[in-house]
Design a protein around this nucleic acid. Structure first.
Lengths: 287, 287
DNA sequence: TAATGTTTGTAAAGATTGTTACAGAGCTTG
DNA sequence: CAAGCTCTGTAACAATCTTTACAAACATTA
């Protein structure tokens, strides 16, 4: 008896047809698969915070006549999984060959993350958080050709958290002009990964001369800008492709934002509320 | 609660104290461990060709108060067996307390990644790669307020790999105008995570009516746009903060790019070379 | 805002499972 | 070889689980 379609696959393909409560169930089931489905229907319902009839309905939608039959299917899968060689367990994406780009990428990225974090000095992290939360300092953000998107992302989030967040224009020709608005003591966040951009280096040099605090996001080979700054993050960017990976960089950005939010929560919460009100008014968002 | 002694070990150490029928049971249990113990007490009794009371007595001899408790023990063991070795990392960043935001974030993100990959249908992934590499299709990219940065990132990379990559303007007022340039059979990549934006939904609807292929990046709760598309990626975005995390989304984008590059390498390599030449000429980059 | 349809949980009925009492089969030993 | 013991299964009981019916909550549409 060979099962061509796993329960997990069934869930995936039918996910859209599910109602909200059913999706919640499906998510917890997938999140803890297949363990979550091995107990009683009540245990499953409780862990997904739904009622037993919801489980019942979901199971029927998946094509099983009743919960016990659903459970049997899981048992069958488990039997096959357990009898398979151990190295198959190490897959990230199930039902996908280990050589698939997804699995390769997942392995690379976690390795990058682990190494970057090992190398990261948490004092630097905490100090940068402090720098960015001090309200008397304006924050200016600039990125390069590739890293422009990260600058954008950081700006979008910081703008909600606090005021005086500025993004430098994409065109480097306008930077000198913008530099006039940068005060001594302000913070300039620079993204620069290989290949390092000459314009950014020039910008950093000028900013440094004006006693601007520079926070640099770079890669493990370190942009030359490091010589102008005391605070930099080196993010591992290796990926199994011709391209570099920005996952670790994004991770650090989000961690920074989270840490800042914790500190500035009183201010953030009111800003967020205002923002929501505005969006509600404009009707741009659903629900 | 750490189980230092597995059920299997208990059985082995007590094997001599068992009666013939009990030994028969123990043997089938060990022979097919732990699967045999996951069904009902009757199923176990049948497969061992003994009676249910015999199972009962054996289970009690092993120190369990009842059959369900015995089964729970097996479940616990299974959970530990099945949980990937990645879980074992208590600390990501060294010399940093586990409660530090960095460690919390790292744990969340890997969990998100694992869960998203579990749920991801690799056929979808491969099909999207195919869609995006077919040269006769133009590719249009659009993001929302937060996800705009991802749209930007995707565009920056795709533009190197192939031609006919277009990014929709940030202002949704211009979208209908831009839609005129979108041909039947083109691909529209949409980023939409909660809170889902009404303008994007409207855009998706219009695009769908024009027979445009829509590829959607959304979160685990699925944007309503899913109803207009056959290809979507649901990325887990939970983070230990008031914000959502885009790390998994970025991961998928990069994986897609890597997969596309592999296919289009001949074309990409020449484009890359041209690009380098241009940059060398402009002198914007440092070696 | 009312009407309609969908979604969801409560609670009770029904089915199944787990447990126990007990009796007979099989051994052992005087 | 029979008394006494252990071992084992049948069958009834008790507990638990699964399923269904129904009504409240919710969203949707006119």
């Amino acid at each position: 008896m060979v099962l061509t379609v796993t329960v997990a696959e069934k869930i995936r393909t039918q996910f859209e047809l599910f109602t909200p409560a059913e999706r919640q169930l499906a998510n917890t089931l997938i999140a803890n698969y297949p363990m979550a489905g091995l107990g009683t229907i009540m245990e499953l319902a409780n862990s997904a915070k739904v009622s037993t009839p919801t489980v019942m309905r979901t199971v029927k939608k998946l094509g099983f006549k009743g919960f016990p039959l659903f459970q049997n299917a899981l048992h069958e899968e488990l039997k096959q999984t357990l009898s398979a060689p151990i190295d198959k367990h190490d897959h990230w994406a199930n039902d996908v060959p280990a050589e698939h780009i997804l699995n390769q990428f997942a392995t690379s990225i976690t390795s990058n993350l682990r190494q970057s974090l090992k190398q990261l000095d948490h004092k630097t992290f905490d100090e940068v958080v402090t720098l960015l939360t001090e309200k008397q300092r304006s924050v200016h953000i600039v990125g390069g050709r590739i890293t422009h998107a990260f600058a954008d992302y950081l700006q979008t989030h910081l703008q909600v958290i606090r005021k005086d967040i500025h993004m430098l224009p994409a065109s480097s020709g306008l930077w000198p002009h913008h530099l006039l608005n940068v005060q001594e003591g302000d913070v300039l966040v620079i993204f620069d990964v290989r290949r390092y951009e000459a314009d950014l280096l020039e910008l950093a040099k000028l900013a440094n001369e004006r006693n601007v605090k520079i926070v640099l996001f770079t890669d493990q080979w370190l942009s030359p800008i490091t010589s102008y700054t005391t605070h930099y993050f080196s993010c591992r960017i290796e990926a199994p492709s011709g391209w570099d990976s920005g996952v670790v960089t994004l991770f650090l950005i989000e961690s920074l934002i989270a840490a800042m939010e914790e500190i500035l929560w009183p201010e953030t919460s009111s800003r967020l509320k205002e923002l929501e009100d505005i969006f509600d008014f404009t009707g741009r968002f659903k629900r």
